[in-house]
């Protein structure tokens, strides 16, 4: 009886064919192709053209890499994004730790407060920071009124203002990213460390932080790429002299109408982010391995 039951039924139909298996991928692939791959391809192609000459040329690329301004803009983009990545991660970590571990009744409120600003939108919040940071803004007025300073501090229309604004806008994403990583750390590990004599600070230093390093890397990566492609905040809080790739691209497309040059900048920005992403994900994978988790 059991022997019969185990015999393979040769009349059973085969599983779905190769084509059928891949069928569900067609709609998203088509969308990606039409709205991503093709326009990207067009943009790359555009960077090799010149409006007054026909055929492919590297003229716009030559211009980009020999021009002091575009190179400074690129450097500024990297520095700005790097600073934001660090600030976001440092500020997000304690908030994420609290949200991951706390059982207090304030947890839901803190969570809402962390995410809620996103509802207001980037531009609104950036202008809000302008009002707070500018020379006649809230902070400077208060400090002058208190007699702490005589001249206003330059808090806006520079790197400082932009980093503050971007950190604020990107912080919720950092918190969510770190939260995932922190929730993956077994609370018993912290308890074990504690009972072995570690103070809360030691627990965080020796146990929590090392085990969440992949999460830290991914938070920094996320903050970096969001920063590098940001337009509104650097434009509004950076002021006239603060040029990053995103604002330079805007200018080239809409003011100078030099689309070839703009395409070069966009490609450089893309490659920059791809490189950082590649380094980041490799690092994250290596760290996971090293942590033996």
């Amino acid at each position: 009886m059991s022997v019969l039951a185990l015999k393979a039924d040769k009349r059973r139909p085969h599983g779905p064919s190769r084509v059928q298996q891949f069928l569900p991928l067609f709609p998203p692939s088509l969308i990606l192709l039409l709205f991503f791959a093709i326009p990207m391809g067009m943009m790359v192609g555009l960077s090799f053209q010149q409006s007054d000459a026909s055929g492919l040329t590297l003229a716009s690329y030559e211009r980009f890499f020999s021009d002091q301004f575009t190179l400074m803009g690129m450097a500024r983009t990297v520095v700005m994004s790097g600073l934001v990545a660090i600030c976001v991660t440092i500020m997000a970590y304690p908030v994420a730790y609290f949200l991951a571990r706390s059982k207090s009744r304030w947890r839901a409120l803190v969570f809402a407060l962390a995410i809620a600003p996103e509802l207001a939108g980037v531009v609104l919040r950036t202008y809000g920071w302008l009002i707070i940071l500018e020379n006649q803004g809230f902070i400077n007025n208060a400090l002058i009124w208190l007699g702490v300073i005589a001249e206003p501090l330059p808090l806006a229309k520079n790197m400082f203002g932009v980093v503050v604004g971007l950190t604020h806008v990107i912080l919720p994403f950092g918190i969510l990213s770190l939260l995932t990583s922190l929730q993956g750390v077994d609370p018993n590990l912290e308890k074990s460390a504690q009972i072995l004599g570690a103070s809360r600070a030691s627990v965080i230093r020796h146990i929590v932080v090392p085990l969440t390093v992949p999460g830290i890397v991914s938070s920094m990566l996320l903050a970096f790429t969001m920063s590098a492609s940001a337009y509104a905040t650097p434009a509004i809080l950076g002021g006239a002299g603060f040029k990053v790739l995103a604002t330079m691209i805007y200018e080239q497309v809409l003011f100078y109408i030099d689309w070839s040059f703009a395409a070069v900048m966009a490609n450089v920005l893309l490659v920059m982010m791809l490189i950082v992403a590649l380094i980041g994900t490799r690092l994250e994978a290596r760290l996971h391995q090293k942590l033996h988790t």
């Binding site: 077994d186 018993n188 590990l189 308890k191 074990s192 085990l211 090293k290 942590l291 033996h292 988790t293």
Partner: peptide
């Protein structure tokens, strides 16, 4: 119960 050894 789950030992909670520090994996790193």
């Amino acid at each position: 119960q789950n030992y909670a050894l520090f994996p790193h």
